[in-house]
Amino acid sequence: MSGRTNARACPERTCVGCRERAAKNDLLRIVLVGEQCVPDQRGTLPGRGAYVHPALVCLDLAVRRRAFSRAFKAQGPFDSAELREAVEALGATTAS
Rank of each mutant, 00 (worst) to 15 (best):
M1A: 15
S2V: 06
S2K: 06
T5F: 08
N6F: 09
A7Y: 07
R8G: 09
R8Y: 09
R8A: 12
R8T: 07
R8C: 08
A9G: 07
A9F: 02
A9D: 09
C10R: 11
C10D: 14
P11E: 05
P11I: 04
R13F: 08
T14K: 03
V16T: 03
G17P: 01
C18K: 01
C18M: 04
R19A: 07
E20T: 12
R21G: 12
R21I: 09
R21E: 10
A22G: 06
A22R: 02
A23N: 10
K24C: 13
K24Q: 14
N25P: 05
D26I: 06
L27H: 01
L27F: 10
L28M: 14
R29M: 11
R29N: 08
V31S: 04
V31P: 02
V31M: 08
V31Q: 04
V31K: 04
L32A: 03
V33E: 06
V33H: 03
G34E: 09
G34Y: 08
G34A: 10
G34R: 07
G34T: 10
E35N: 12
E35W: 03
Q36C: 13
C37T: 08
C37S: 09
P39S: 12
P39F: 05
D40L: 09
D40T: 09
D40A: 10
D40K: 04
R42E: 15
R42N: 15
T44Q: 07
T44H: 02
L45P: 05
L45K: 08
P46Y: 00
P46G: 13
P46M: 06
G47N: 07
R48V: 12
R48I: 12
G49Y: 00
V52M: 06
H53F: 05
P54K: 02
P54W: 01
A55Q: 08
A55C: 11
L56Q: 09
V57M: 08
V57D: 11
V57W: 06
C58G: 03
C58V: 06
L59W: 00
L59H: 01
D60I: 08
D60N: 12
L61Y: 06
L61K: 07
R64V: 15
R65K: 11
R65S: 13
R66T: 06
A67W: 00
F68A: 02
S69P: 02
S69M: 10
R70V: 10
R70S: 14
R70Q: 13
K73M: 09
K73P: 03
K73Q: 11
Q75G: 10
Q75N: 12
G76D: 04
G76I: 04
G76C: 08
P77N: 08
F78A: 02
F78D: 00
D79C: 12
D79A: 13
A81G: 12
L83H: 00
L83E: 00
E85K: 12
A86G: 03
A86E: 03
A86Y: 01
A86S: 07
V87W: 01
E88K: 03
L90N: 05
G91V: 04
A92C: 05
T93H: 15
T93Y: 15
T94L: 15
A95K: 13
S96A: 14
S96Q: 14
S96R: 15
